[in-house]
Structure formats: structure tokens, C-alpha cells
Design a protein around this nucleic acid. Structure first.
Lengths: 217, 217
DNA sequence: TAGATTGTTAATCGATTAACAATC
DNA sequence: TAGATTGTTAATCGATTAACAATC
């Protein structure tokens, strides 16, 4: 209907990750009572150069004032609009084991616009129950319920052996983004976005860093 | 005492992350009964080029046979030796809330060499209890217990507001690697390694991907 | 032998940083 | 005005990919 959207050419993926970090830092600054900040200050808080901060933002428009810097509140609004978190996202959790239940009980991302509104499992003892006021349905109801609720994002907290099957069902149900906590690579169509979090891999990165540091000493 | 270690110049950080992915994929191949693989096959499984796989490995030595490829079991051993996970790592969890307890109950990374052996909290109702056979101590005992147990890695699952203080205490206690689940940037000395996992940020990346895809259509 | 695949060097590509005119 | 800081272009740096001789 409108062509107001800028053409938005190649935005490095790493730049989008940093946008999330800027957002988090800006929210912290606001909590500290800071109204304004600068690319130098924001970068220093995160270990980036000022040029990096400005370049990242420049992909999307102009948000500051030369000689002054950025209004924290305005930059927050701008970044949330870019990321698409200026409106609420209902989220489904699949797999109501320890991790699934912990995620449902965790309020931390409600503040960023994400609200877990439903859980799924295949265990008959879980199905029909309620966890922290969130209903748990059978996985067979996935498509019906996510469609009715307009849910486009799901968090997978299922065993590795089930992950690909569950991913297939999420795709089938029309889910467009998957956050996968299972320690396996899942294969989904290109049109579906995925992000993986594997705690073992993160620990391996720490292991490497520690071992390497020892070697160098 | 010995100079057997190769000089090991600049290894891109991204290459180390991919090493973990190769390892995970190789373990999957072994489970499928594959004895051998190639850079082309391994790359295809993860969406990388064959050149990328060979280049990453080349930073550390020669692990394959021209014309043949790689023996999965051998390459697994080699990568584990590089990452430092060819020996067990005892790990402490700080913060025994929903997430902390879920991590203790999760066996997934024991298989990769990481074993949670102790938990810490400040809540008197938790201190002295046992979760999945893991004792929970008061945070005041951190230094004493981690030193005695030779623990060098800790997982932080504490509220954002407490994160920096807890990080300071971990550093004080001689911890060398921190996996931080709190949604804030923590500042630690250069000699201490840290990795952050922020679920909200991962969801933001999905949000961006979904919203952007819609725009382009 | 012919076919496959490695390890490595050189070429390409992309991302970060430096520099600076414009602006407040 | 002088000082600060943006947005942006050009220069640098680093990482990925292509190509190929060596090898099984």
C-alpha cells in the first residue's frame, strides 16, 4: 500500500545481533537515569568502536543529532521498530520438561515484547495441565492452536532425538521462527528462520578460551 | 617444559564456534554408523562450504587423508583435544531458581565433558538442600568450595540486578570462565572468559528475520 | 590407472575502522 | 565561537572461497 519502507540493502547479520545489545544497553542507561548517550559511550559499554555503532545504525536511518548524540528513549523506539519488537509476540513452547517449564516461569523476556502463551507436550500427564497460568496442550493440537492465536514463533525444548520431528511439525503448523534448545542441527525450509542455543557448545567455547589462555602463559 | 604445542597463530573466533558444530555433527554421524566423512559432506550438513571446513581444521593441524577424507572417531578426538573437552570439567551453577534447577536436571552436556557438581544460592530455604543429588551451598562459600573442587567454570542463572555482583564474586573466587544467562552485560577482567546467552535477544533475532521476510514479499 | 579428497596458497569478498565535512 | 558528535566515504583489515598440486 505504501513504499515508505527504505530499500534496506545488505545488512550484516552481526549488525542485527549488535542492535539487540545496543537496545539492552540503552534500557540499562534509561534505568540509570541517563537521557542521552553517544556512539562512543554506547560502544565503550559493549567493547565496540564508536564507528561500529554509527555504521550499524546507519543501515537503517539517522537517529542522532550531530554534536549532541542520541536520545536513549528515541533510539530504543527506533531499534524496537527495526527488530519488530514494538508490538507483542505470542510465543509457544514445545516440550514441558525442566527447561520448558523454567522458560515458562521466566518473566525476563515479557519486557522485550515476548509472551509465552501456550505450551505443548506429548506426555499425557502434562497435557491438560496448567503451568504458571499457561495451558499445556497435546502436540497434535499445534496447528489448530497456533493458527487461532496468531503464534508465529516457537521455542523447542525437547530431547535431541525428537528435535527434527518436532521441527517438521512446527513448520507444518505454519510457524515462521524457531528457537531450538536441542543439541542437534535441525533442517527447516529457507522461509522459516531458526536460531540455536546449545549450552554444551557455549561451555566448549569457554573451555577452549581457558585452555588456550593456560597455554599462552 | 616442552615446546610440543604448535605456535597456533590467529584463529578466528568464528572458527572455534564452528569446531563445536563439527564435533556435534560428527557425533551424530557416528550414531548413524558412519565411519568416515569428508569436508564436503560435513559442510553440507551445516550449510558451510567444503573449503571452510578444511580451512578451520587447518588452523590446528592435519586430520584427514587426501583422497579418503576423515575418520569420524579420529576427528572427534582431535576436536575435543583442541577444545579442551577431552578431560572432564566440573561446573558450578549460581542461582537455583527455575533456570538453575533446570540446568542441574539437564543431562545433555555431561556427554560433552561438563558435569555440574555444585550449586550456589543466597536463599536460606535452598541452601543446604540437594537438587538432583547436587548440593546447594551459600554463595559465601563460593571461593572455598570451587577451589577445593578445582572448579574453573560457572553458569550464572541469577536475576539481572544481581548479575554484576555475582560476576565480581566469581572472579574473586578464581573462576576463569562464566556462562551468563542474565540479560545484562557483565564486566569481568580480560583474563576471565565469558559467554552470554540472552533468550530475549535470540527471540529478537527471530522477530527481525520474520518481519524482514514479510517486508520483502 | 582414474576418481576422490586433502592441505594450502592466492584471489575475492565483506566487514570494520579511520577520517572528516556537516551540524548542533 | 569552540567543542562535541553525527552520518558517510574511503582505506584497511580479516575472513571466506576458489583453485590446484599432492596424495591415496
Amino acid at each position: 500500500m505504501s513504499d515508505a519502507q527504505p530499500p534496506q540493502p545488505f545488512v550484516p547479520k552481526a549488525a542485527i545481533s549488535r542492535l539487540s545489545l545496543y537496545l539492552r544497553e540503552l534500557q540499562q542507561l534509561i534505568r540509570n537515569g541517563d537521557e542521552r548517550t553517544s556512539s562512543t559511550k554506547l560502544g565503550a559499554l559493549l567493547g565496540f568502536t564508536d564507528a561500529q555503532v554509527r555504521k550499524d545504525l546507519a543501515h537503517f536511518g539517522q537517529f542522532g543529532t550531530p554534536g549532541i548524540g542520541y536520545r536513549c528513549a528515541d533510539l530504543i523506539d527506533a531499534i524496537r521498530a527495526i527488530l519488530g519488537t514494538n508490538r507483542p509476540w505470542p510465543v509457544a513452547v514445545v516440550g514441558m520438561g525442566n527447561l520448558g517449564r523454567a522458560l515458562v516461569g521466566y518473566g525476563g523476556f515479557a519486557q522485550q515484547g515476548f509472551k509465552i502463551t501456550v505450551g505443548f507436550d506429548v506426555d499425557p500427564r502434562m497435557v491438560g495441565s496448567t503451568i504458571e497460568n499457561i495451558p499445556v496442550h497435546h502436540l497434535d493440537e499445534l496447528a489448530k492452536i497456533t493458527a487461532a492465536a496468531g503464534i508465529k514463533m516457537a521455542i523447542m525444548a525437547v530431547p535431541a532425538a525428537a528435535a527434527q520431528q518436532v521441527a517438521d511439525r512446527l513448520v507444518q503448523a505454519g510457524i515462521e521462527g524457531i528457537l531450538n534448545f536441542a543439541p542437534v542441527t535441525i533442517s527447516v525450509p529457507n522461509a522459516v528462520s531458526q536460531v540455536g542455543v546449545d549450552v554444551a557448545i557455549e561451555l566448549e567455547q569457554l573451555s577452549y578460551a581457558i585452555v588456550t589462555k593456560l597455554q599462552n602463559s
